[in-house]
Design a protein around this nucleic acid. Structure first.
Lengths: 201, 201
DNA sequence: ACATTATTCAACATGATGTTGATTATAGGT
DNA sequence: ACCTATAATCAACATCATGTTGAATAATGT
């Protein structure tokens, strides 16, 4: 993401991007050919190779970019703060920022994380949450655990990640603030207490 | 899965299966060619087409089979029962059976649900849990919900699915009974209570 | 206006694909 | 053990996407 002065480069890259997105909406990535992208972008097939090694390479560059943006937000998440906001029944501002960032890359994420998407990428993004979760939990841990630590991290990470996925899949129909509140509540009080089936502590 | 009388058919199918599995351990499914499978299976390339339409078709048949087996177990899960066993601090027997079934298809699932695996298949399996979760929660619901029902289902489903994934990824190093106990505990009391950071209700 | 560079175009060798027809090998039923 | 059905082999084929090349053309920045 350095030089971008030449309008020709920018224009063809944009055409290629739009063509790829439109194709991804129809079929899975591994069935998309360079020929198809070039055709739909109204760009010579040879021109594609002036920008990318192949289809996978093009996708990888897009993935890296989005991943970088999300990573910056995730690294600011703090469990203790999140718990405080949950007790106040307020949305946690750092979470709100994260959800806004996700919304910025909505279509791309929806395609990558949905059917026909890329499982390796899903795992990579989830790993961002997992790493952060470990970092947060190391700070205030009781001596003995009733269940293994790594399983608990898997639970929390997947749960939150799943909620985010659901948000993306349903077209982000609720605002980021509401999302942040849902996350705080479920993590702190557990799903069944949040639901009202069990009593709060 | 009907007729399987001819030993020749069975033998080549088995060779093709082992070749595919060995290739999946090395590279992602969409880069595997019919030529490669046939070579590694010591089977004529033309013979492959006597059994399967293409590589994707072969994988689909395997996926369907495993999915069917798991579905039978998942449909027997019952939230109310699970909650009772959680209160008794006992593993929920229906869960135990499910985990045993998962263990039966360990390598295949590890390949399909791990890096280079198939996101569409992950979503399909998760959908089995989601559908069952909705079925269970419809029965005993409070009048008003503090957060939307579908987000809660997404949370619970993804959380449990994530724990199962972690189990598979780490080589199923703890027994099915212990797994069933972890699941009951986290769902009922919430992750932080289970962890010991918060007090139980 | 000019030098730079992006794009186009045609052509090429390569490799996987899916199919076909003839041939050989092997299974199961009698 | 025999015989028929069918599975597997093999060689050959047309087709298509790939990745690359060299020369011609077009657009860009300064």
């Amino acid at each position: 993401m350095a030089e971008k002065l030449d309008r020709r480069k920018a224009k063809t890259k944009q055409h290629l991007y739009q063509a790829l997105m439109s194709l991804l909406a129809e079929k899975s990535a591994d069935t998309i050919t360079v020929t198809e992208i070039a055709e739909r972008a109204n760009v010579n097939r040879g021109t594609f190779y002036l920008h990318y090694k192949d289809v996978a390479d093009m996708l990888q560059q897009l993935k890296d970019e989005v991943c970088e943006h999300l990573s910056e937000r995730i690294e600011k998440l703090n469990l203790a703060d999140a718990m405080r906001y949950a007790d106040m029944e307020e949305p946690y501002p750092v979470s709100v920022k994260l959800f806004e960032e996700i919304a910025n890359h909505a279509e791309f994420l929806r395609l990558m994380l949905g059917p026909g998407g890329d499982l390796t990428y899903v795992i990579r993004l989830r790993e961002l949450f997992t790493a952060r979760m470990y970092h947060n939990l190391q700070l205030n841990m009781p001596d003995k655990l009733s269940i293994p630590m790594d399983y608990l991290v898997a639970y929390l990470t997947s749960a939150n990640f799943g909620v985010v996925l659901h948000w993306i899949e349903t077209g982000m129909s609720i605002p980021p603030e509401k999302m942040a509140k849902i996350m705080s509540s479920t993590v702190n009080f557990g799903p069944l207490v949040t639901l009202g089936i069990r009593q709060a502590p």
